[in-house]
Design a protein around this nucleic acid. Structure first.
Lengths: 235, 235
DNA sequence: CGTTAATCTAGAACAAGTTTCAGACTTGAT
DNA sequence: ATCAAGTCTGAAACTTGTTCTAGATTAACG
């Protein structure tokens, strides 16, 4: 009679992603049948739809369940909390965004320019559905330890996007990684600040530009780990 | 029969800080009697105590009310939501912290050094009560528009702390202000990331150091709006 | 003092996230 | 086809943030 958690089957009792202790790389990837993938898709779609309407608070679990034709218990089996659900939605959206961005790489001179351009483009994409963005961003920063794995996944996605914009270097130095982390933090924070009306778009643009200078800083003067001649400007 | 909101009395209907429209600098500062100040103090104290125990989720409104010997309705009159309550708590704590920091100014060579040192000191202070820090930080980033005035207040406090560390300059350039904002974002984000176990203390230190370089960057090589000969390096 | 508006209290009521349960349905292996 | 294990459903229950109400207290003012 096990129950709970679609993404990690254990014969006895299973705890979804609540690996509060630390390690344990999630038992195994459970195949997930066709119907199940379909359900999951419906849920994420309904979530995005509701979020577009009224943001974080409009995403109500009962509504999501009904709207995606799934029982409440099932919804909770797929996503153990509202925050998990919205972080998964963000992952989904970022996936699409990353795809879009890949198709038309930024055209700036310096790495900093390209990153800034990419981030502003991402910003523009989210801006198009501000309530959805609000819902996802708030979930992301409100997430507690029980959502760490999922949040980390989103973080890695963002990192990938930024590294891509920098020129797809494969062996970033620790300094560069630190700069990328700072840029990530700034990006998300400015997004939230803008969404809650505490900063203007102009301010966002300036701040993104400011933080991106960190790239030039680490690009040049620092001892690089591996100066391999990767394809920096092409794609 | 007016009711609701201790901090802004209007004869007819009063809305606390829910100035969603934008302006309106909060009708007037209502004197606030002795008993009331005492109640407010009790509430904030109880909040901090509960938060120290179990973080955000341990701060339960009924508990806070009971623990501070105040009716639930009264608690809500003083702080219109749990988030308001915790943001106010953060303001309170930052006040104390700022006082402490003022007493022993940072001793670095460059402005960047001093800011980094100050931020790490602040980090250390919050680290001492990680659950309290978690509760406050999560409330701060989860806050929606209805809490904007209070969040802004906290933001101004943080800005003041950083500017102090830079040497108390009174006419920061737009570039410098942008750098300060980015530093603020980074500080809060790394705090949260550390609190939720997704980053090590070492990483935090590195990232704070990284972002603080932006200060040197704006300190020197950039075309400044007003090149007035202010005391930039002395403090 | 006595009046009157504002504030405070106790407690019920409501809303939305989360959990639980019994029973129906699927799936996979024999 | 059948059995066991795992999944899904519908509905109720529980938790905690938030709102509401009626009556008791307090404070300012004459």
């Amino acid at each position: 009679m096990p129950d709970r958690n679609v993404g990690g089957k254990v014969t006895k009792v299973d705890n979804p992603a609540a690996n509060a202790s630390g390690r344990s790389p999630r038992p195994a990837a459970p195949p997930l049948t066709e119907r199940q993938r379909e359900r999951r898709r419906r849920i994420l779609h309904a979530t995005a739809r509701l979020a577009c309407r009224g943001g974080f608070e409009a995403v109500q679990m009962r509504e999501v369940a009904e709207s995606s034709q799934v029982a409440l218990g099932t919804l909770y089996r797929y996503f153990p909390s509202k925050v998990h659900l919205l972080v998964a939605t963000m992952h989904d959206q970022l996936e699409q965004l990353h795809g879009t961005l890949r198709k038309s790489p930024p055209a700036g001179e310096t790495a900093a320019d390209r990153v800034a351009q990419t981030l502003m483009r991402a910003f523009g994409a989210l801006q198009r559905e501000p309530r959805l963005a609000e819902a996802m961003a708030r979930a992301l920063t409100f997430a507690d330890r029980s959502v760490s794995p999922e949040v980390d996944q989103v973080s890695r996605q963002t990192t990938a996007i930024i590294l891509d914009a920098m020129g797809g270097l494969e062996n970033p130095t620790p300094e560069q990684l630190s700069a990328v982390r700072v840029i990530e933090h700034t990006w998300l924070s400015t997004l939230i600040t803008w969404l809650s009306g505490r900063a203007s778009l102009a301010q966002v643009r300036v701040d993104i530009g400011t933080v991106c200078r960190l790239i030039d800083l680490t690009d040049a003067g620092v001892r690089v780990q591996t100066p391999r001649p990767g394809p920096v400007g092409s794609g």
